[in-house]
Amino acid sequence: MTPRRKRLLLVGGILVGVATATTVATFAFRENLSYFYNPTQVTDGAVPRGRSFRVGGLVTKGSLHREPGKLEVRFVVTDLNRDVTVQYAGVLPDLFREGQGIIAHGKLDPSGVFVADEVLAKHDEKYMPPEVAQSLKHKPNAEGGGT
């Protein structure tokens, strides 16, 4: 074996080794690397107890309620399977609207309401002019950010 071939194998070996180790590590920590839980996981109890976590889903249309004269809002987040009610007092991002994908950070209270201390808006990778969005509006699933 020529020295150059040896070096080629060494570099290839390092790459394969590091790639394997990284793959194993990422699969082992897959759950921890997830940024948010969906409402089904929340209602099934597959979320950390007594600790803050994130819930992500779509804001159910018609579910947004604001107490008159108060900053506090309540809305329902859904993954189209299960729902979680979110309570939040704070500034909502510009993209927040009914039907939009959002991610809330906070804790579950004993009654099953998610009390959020931060609400972020998630948008998808699709961009289009307002006129196009308008003409797509009557088609299903054409509007709103995905989760």
Partner: peptide, 20 residues
């Protein structure tokens, strides 16, 4: 691979770009 706040790719993918 993971759910994230950041959205998916608009251009750098095998499917058609998601913008006009």
């Amino acid at each position: 691979w993971w759910n994230s706040l950041h959205q998916g790719s608009t251009v750098m993918k095998l499917a058609r770009p998601s913008m006009p």
